[in-house]
Design a protein around this nucleic acid. Structure first.
Lengths: 64, 64
DNA sequence: AGTGAATATGAATTCAAC
DNA sequence: GTTGAATTCATATTCACT
């Protein structure tokens, strides 16, 4: 279900430094959610997430 | 000069809906600044700009 | 330090299917 | 309306040069 997945995505990117959609995909898989990068891209757009800079100067997904 | 360019970038993305670095590159060129996409990518990172969603639901660069 | 050219990587979209 | 596979497109990085 989409809503569940998006909630999980929000939690994952809050807890950890996720720098790519591929990383996010792997994390979701651990939680039993098998989706493709395309779906994650759509989720990110729908949730208005952004790729920002972490403290370390690396890119990471975040909530604006 | 880098600072000048970055100032102009900030102005451009504030005034208009810029959705890609290529668009930004063209705009800079109009102002006489000839730089490559690589440089713009570095500027964006350095300035911590983000790709967000505009009102229309399209992606656009913005200041966080 | 700053940049360009080229490349590798990442991400958005298309198209079809359900 | 939602998704995956494949593709196109956009962007981050590498390497060389200055």
């Amino acid at each position: 279900m989409k809503l569940e997945r998006q909630k999980l995505i929000k939690k994952i990117i809050t807890d950890d430094e996720i720098s790519t959609q591929e990383m996010l995909q792997k994390r979701l898989k651990i939680h039993g959610l098998n989706v493709t990068q395309a779906t994650i891209s759509r989720d990110i757009k729908e949730m208005s997430l952004v790729k920002t800079l972490g403290i370390n100067g690396q890119y990471k997904y975040g909530i604006p």
